[in-house]
Nucleic acid binder design. Structure first.
Lengths: 210, 210, 210, 210
DNA sequence: GTGTAATCGAGACGGTACGTCGAGTCTTGTG
DNA sequence: CACAAGACTCGACGTACCGTCTCGATTACAC
């Protein structure tokens, strides 16, 4: 099943108490901020995302941004999430492990190489490695949904008898996504459909002659 | 054979002509700068490396740093290179592909997890994705030496008949290192020796039941 | 009548619209900056006035200084103006041209030689000769008020019949103040009360024997 | 009589001892330095004269400049002196004080307004007010020669009976040159031939009606 | 209606770091 | 020796963001 839409990040959802006093949050401002952030993000990368720039573009005061997002990285996660959440929400189920994996990975590669996501993802991962709270946020919003989407593929393959139930789906996922991220982030060799096919084949059959 | 020591980065080596005019570069300053950079790098990550901080620590003027390194990332590569270049320069050759890979990867994992390298590597990769020249530098100094070290392992395995000559070593390397980098940078699951064993096994044998 | 307090320099007075939005300017910061500037100015001259030094002394950020003053010379004019504006605001009117001029010039000389104003004034004039906008500022704030103060003296003398109405007060002012500035700035001979008396006498009677 | 070429400034003339050991000073370098300095001086003012700029233009090392001139202001004095020393070396002697003064002052005004000397002179005077040794240098090379040239005019006028022997030539000179410098440096009103005539007339006849 | 309370924009504030420039000094090899 | 080349320290420059802080103005709900 697809990702059941995790709550937006930023400040803890204020809808706890039943009392809603004061001026309500401006939806217009929120939208404008996210739009400005996404725009800057996909053009100049995270380093182009400055609170001042967002504030100016979105015609919003910096205080308003800081009221809802603790850091520009958190804002970037929200912007990315809005960008991605609609897509690829269904686990492929073609009846074949090989085809399921290709159906999962090929569109992802196309998407991720269609715009300069590499530097954005790299920057967010880097931030996550120095900020525990942000790491949790990042994993919950962007990492786990994708892994949750993929795990059933291996369960189905076990059911069909294609693979042993001993196989650890986490290791399999890391082999596959790890290779793709590697080429995405390190860019030593192209990340294209041929490479997806190659790693799926190799992961399924192994290197050893038989 | 191991990496034959790539030239230092920074400004192009000035030893082209036979004439060496002017005051020679201060080796003392160079060393102090690299030491300060490495220190800051491994403690606070790249974000802690500021030109001002290095200048102060190394008792060196900022102008001197900028004379030799165009950006703090380039400096970080030099510092990292100095840190790494001595280690792991010989290709393992145990007589078995499995053992060779473990001998290659286990020490690397130990090293890379022994200190907070993750955020440093992430930051450098991110910088590389926005700066073409830096990317070339990074790949030449840090990426290719490691891959060159690993490739012969697969050639030996082909000679021994363990794997087909059809196998593309680049794909194999990306599967293995990619998985490790993935856990290093994304940190969704631990990067330990057990994981190394798991990905080596899986890569060798494949997922499919046989 | 004298100029009744020209507006402060620096950025254009923001009090145009009736709307006073945003955080108001900090009077405390403004005062501290001017005090620091004046202090540095009268001790070390303009060359001792650095934006960094002012920022540190006034416990103010450099950005705040630059927000309001485009250059240290402009700041110096403001500091000098604050220092001078209170004094000598009334045109002397003793009933005699000679006495009026002495009453105008002697206190000015005492003031101007009491502290190292010479190098400050020299520096500002030099800046003015290379910067059109600054020149306008300097003249409006420091030059014209003084000349406006002096002109009525000559009008009174004309009314009393002491001098012809043909006399050009501008020429007379330049003869008197010019000589004083000359000794102040070039310092080839002392600028003292005796010199003031001498130039007043000579300007009134002329060199020619009669 | 006028000063017959004061010695060059900079380091004390090395031609004292009879022994002239080592490589002789390069006349070519000296000339190139002065030319570069004058060029920069008259185009961008003293602030455009940097040791680096001169060194580059003159294809000379900075060390060579510092060997002979302690500061760029001293160099500027030398450059200016070279520029001026050839001109106006004879005291006018027309037989009339009025004409002598005009013959002295009008060409000076033409010269001094023909190029942006104002900012240069202002800068040198400012420097002189903060540097005792430079002040002595400046006065000896540029101030006194001019005054020495002018003093005989008043002696002649006394001899002719035009003015009293009581007249202090120093005061007279300060009235005349002071006014001109004032308009030159402060630029509140034009410095032109009409002004020269006006101050000469006024200085000769005085303001008072008679 | 009239608080009360949270929001919003605008924008100034103290900081930190940036990358550059010029001043002087020092250290080579060459003439 | 003088000189060119050029590396070095020091300190100021002016800019860009950071995250915080006042303001006056808005906009809701609660009384």
């Amino acid at each position: 099943m697809a990702d059941p839409s995790p709550p937006p990040s930023g400040r803890v959802s204020p809808s706890e108490g039943p009392v809603r006093r004061g001026r309500p949050r401006s939806e217009k401002a929120r939208t404008a901020i996210l739009a400005a952030a996404e725009d800057l993000l996909l053009n100049g990368g995270l380093e182009a995302v400055s609170m001042d720039a967002i504030a100016e573009r979105a015609s919003v005061s910096k205080a308003t941004i800081y009221r809802w997002w603790p850091a520009k990285e958190t804002l970037a996660v929200d912007a990315l999430y809005a960008d991605w959440s609609g897509s690829y929400t269904a686990t492929p189920d073609t009846g074949s492990l090989r085809e399921d994996l290709l159906a999962l990975l090929v569109p992802w590669v196309e998407r991720v190489t269609s715009r300069p996501y590499a530097r954005v993802i790299g920057a967010l991962l880097t931030k996550a490695r120095s900020d525990e709270k942000f790491a949790e946020e990042y994993e919950r919003r962007l990492v786990q949904p994708r892994r949750a989407l993929a795990r059933p593929i291996f369960a189905h393959a076990v059911e069909r008898g294609e693979i042993s139930s001993e196989i650890d789906p986490e290791v399999a996922l890391d082999l596959l996504y790890g290779s793709l991220y590697f080429r995405l982030l390190q860019a030593h060799l192209p990340l294209d459909e041929a490479f997806v096919v190659a790693i799926v084949e190799t992961t399924l059959s192994g290197l050893l002659a038989r």
